[in-house]
Amino acid sequence: MNAYDSLVQQAQKPPMRLFLDLPTWIHAGREETGGSLSLIEQRIPSGFASVWHTHLDEDESFFVIEGELTITIGDRSLVVGPGQYAFGPRGVPHGFRVTGEQTARLLLLTSGPRFADFIAETSDPAEDATPGKPGEPDLARLFAAAERHGLALLGPMPD
């Protein structure tokens, strides 16, 4: 395989995974970027809230393709809709809630590969699970992986 074939192969949509029962795609991570970033796509239903968390050594960016999020970064909240972007610097607690009426589709970009590593470790191939069948997350699995991948899980989103 030559360099062009490698680029074409990377351009194909990756297989769907389920992270917290959410359809998730790891578009880029350690292997695809030489360890420089993570690019994750998710589809998230209205009302879902992420865990309040901090990336210890990576910045996180949010780009909304469809739907609407309320993103809280530190003590500030902002509403982000289609085509809009928000930035969460490393070391600052943050999270989001899907506040629009429709399912949100978003891209999450981190300035290193550890977030993709975390998602890969704590998600399952879609063929091994059924989307839309929410269950209790395996908290021990999440907390152990978070610690290994530079994340601090702080609890539920603040109101």
Rank of each mutant, 00 (worst) to 15 (best):
A146P: 08
D117P: 08
F87D: 14
P82Y: 04
I26E: 10
L106D: 11
A49E: 15
L108C: 09
P134M: 04
G81P: 05
L151Y: 03
T72D: 12
D5C: 01
G67V: 07
A152Y: 00
L153T: 08
G67C: 13
Y85M: 12
P23V: 09
T99P: 06
I119W: 05
P131H: 02
T103A: 14
I119K: 07
L18K: 02
G132H: 04
R148A: 12
T70F: 02
L154D: 12
H27P: 02
V98H: 02
T130F: 05
R43V: 10
E31L: 00
D117V: 00
G29P: 11
R17D: 01
L56A: 13
E60S: 08
E127D: 15
L151F: 04
E136W: 00
G74W: 13
P15D: 15
E66K: 11
S36K: 10
W52S: 09
D59K: 00
G83F: 05
A140D: 15
T99L: 02
M16W: 10
F62P: 07
F63V: 12
P82A: 15
G132Q: 06
D128H: 09
G112L: 11
V80P: 05
G132F: 01
Y85E: 03
G155T: 06
D128Y: 01
S6D: 15
W52R: 06
Q84N: 13
T72A: 14
D57F: 07
S46L: 05
G112K: 10
D117N: 07
T33V: 01
P156F: 00
T99G: 08
L20W: 03
L18H: 04
L78V: 05
I40D: 13
N2W: 08
S111N: 04
